[in-house]
Design a protein around this nucleic acid. Structure first.
Lengths: 213, 213
DNA sequence: GTCTATATACGGATAGAC
DNA sequence: GTCTATCCGTATATAGAC
């Protein structure tokens, strides 16, 4: 082992080093999404991660870079279920309801709301992060649903002239009043009964608007 | 004039004093809604208002109190058109479209978005402000529309079982994707063509879902 | 690479003259 | 009431020992 460079040592301890970097990332995620960018301090992140503040600066260039890292990471992981294409084997009502629940489970959950709130608060400082979120979240979800709606239209099951616009309207219906209330933190947790009502309402209105005849 | 107490002087200069207080309020509104609560500094407000920082503290108890004052003021003034009851003389399509435009004109405008973004960012610190906004904005708008929908249902023009829920769905449709994009500041100004499309889509879908037979 | 200690700056709030 | 000057806490970032 003697004579190994620090770089080699670092490679040898790659597993441990990676988990330390990850523990910083995890701690930063908690702190940033909890306090917001402005009130989050590097000291708090260091304390939460159980490392010295300087150690953070050896892994990340600064507060901005750390924030960008945790947001991109959260977007990738949290929005992943939203990015999955639709299951197409069922009748439209069942398929729409399934898509709706999967969507609301993600975006109404505390983590989803915290991420979105933080992005809304900091979209002026980090415009690229806001756009990355939009693309891998709302836009991707609408695009996936649009594919399915186009298929339904082709089969003559529904009447959907503009699939992407229709998909966006569906998700808009779905957010409804619940989303506003959650954004303003008026409801601490999403009430499952309200979620089910939102799903049922959205599916009902959407199908009524796009019924053939 | 000699011997007048400072209180009397203050009353005598009431017009000027009031306009100075208002100029502080105006400056604070610009600074807070532009930078957000955290990044807004009392120095910046003083500079913008053209007064010394100490003068602000003679009118307001501190940063929190000043913030509360400007938010409540903005809510009252900005959301006032939303609180007006519906004009009922027209056919449902025209009335809904008029309500829709009035709503979007307020909430999609830069000032409306800045207010909402700030409240979303600070709802943890000022939960009462978030609730006041919700009540005098989204809730009041929905309640007013619900009254009109109940009337239409009573006359047999539309089928509306739960007017308040239906009204909320209408505004949800109306916000659509535009609102998300504006929240994340992806579109700097609302495109009038997109607004008209949003209005038309919302009215069309809503009427299809609530048509009598 | 990791820790302790520190440099530097900034913001909220206050003291004292007029 | 209004101004100038200042106190005090805190936060980002860095220096130096191991």
């Amino acid at each position: 082992m003697a004579g190994k460079s620090t770089a080699a040592k670092h490679r040898a301890q790659n597993g441990a080093a990676r988990s330390k970097r990850d523990s910083i990332l995890d701690a930063a995620t908690r702190v940033f999404l909890d306090c917001g960018y402005g009130d989050a301090s590097m000291d708090a992140v260091a304390r939460e991660a159980g490392v010295a503040k300087q150690t953070i600066y050896s892994y990340f260039d600064g507060k901005d870079a750390l924030f960008e890292a945790i947001v991109r990471d959260k977007c990738d992981r949290l929005l992943e279920p939203i990015g999955m294409p639709e299951a197409r084997g069922n009748d439209p009502e069942t398929a729409l309801a399934r898509t709706a629940r999967r969507f609301l489970d993600v975006v109404l959950a505390p983590e989803g709301m915290a991420l979105f709130r933080t992005l809304v608060a900091e979209c002026g400082r980090f415009p690229n992060l806001a756009e990355a979120f939009y693309r891998s979240g709302p836009l991707l979800a609408a695009a996936n649903l649009a594919d399915y709606l186009a298929e339904l239209d082709g089969k003559g099951i529904l009447k959907v002239d503009d699939p992407l616009r229709a998909a966006r309207l569906f998700f808009a219906l779905l957010r409804g009043d619940l989303y506003i209330r959650r954004l303003l933190d008026l409801d601490s947790e999403p009430d499952p009964a309200d979620v089910e009502r939102a799903v049922a309402d959205a599916v009902r209105v959407f199908l009524a608007a796009h019924a053939r005849r």
